[in-house]
């Protein structure tokens, strides 16, 4: 269908294109971390329903843990498939994060719209020496960006860079 280009100040082809930027992937142990996390969240229901099935006389009861197992398997598949997609890209004026396997998304936050930044680390992340960089905008929680799976020093450097740029362009 037709694509009309009028009223623009620059030809669109000359704009910086996010697709051509180098995307930085997470260290491999971030995937392991996601596996362990998945094991924790899906392991409990599987174990619980299995115990219930064993105790109950009805053979049909085994369908419940089977279902739980299926969901768990899917969760692990999502981690495996999703890992290579997860990456962030840093440019002079914005930060981009892309993710997802079945449902994929790519979000960019311009530095001149950042409200504040923080680095967080959960208990399991600490075991894996990983950090999460959280970036908050005024656009509400749906537009806030969080970049997980960062090395501690990488996260700190990134945070400093982003905060400095945010202050510079704000």
């Amino acid at each position: 269908m037709e694509s009309v280009w009028e009223n623009l100040e620059v030809p669109i082809e000359e704009l910086p294109q996010i697709e051509e930027v180098h995307f930085q992937k997470h260290p491999l142990r971030y995937r392991t971390y996601r596996y362990v996390l998945g094991l924790f969240w899906t392991g409990l229901p599987v174990a619980g329903t299995s115990a219930f099935a064993v105790l109950s006389e009805d053979p049909l009861a085994y369908s419940v843990p089977a279902g739980a197992l299926l969901i768990a398997a899917f969760a692990f598949l999502a981690v495996a498939k999703g890992y290579p997609r997860r990456a962030y890209a840093l440019r002079e004026r914005d930060l981009t994060y892309r993710r997802g396997w079945i449902f994929t998304s790519m979000t960019t936050v311009p530095f001149n719209r950042i409200q504040h930044t923080e680095v967080s680390q959960g208990p399991l992340e600490r075991k894996f020496a990983l950090c999460t960089l959280n970036i908050y905008t005024a656009g509400g929680s749906t537009s806030d960006l969080s970049v997980p799976g960062l090395e501690a020093d990488e996260a700190a450097r990134l945070r400093d860079y982003v905060a400095r740029k945010a202050a510079q362009y704000a």
Partner: peptide, 24 residues
């Protein structure tokens, strides 16, 4: 405030996606 594109496997096959616009 920020923008994002999102898609899924069904849309991707047809080279389609959604554009999300976030404001305050």
């Amino acid at each position: 405030q920020s923008v994002s594109v999102s898609t899924n496997v069904f849309l991707k096959r047809r080279k389609l996606c959604h554009l999300n616009l976030y404001t305050a």
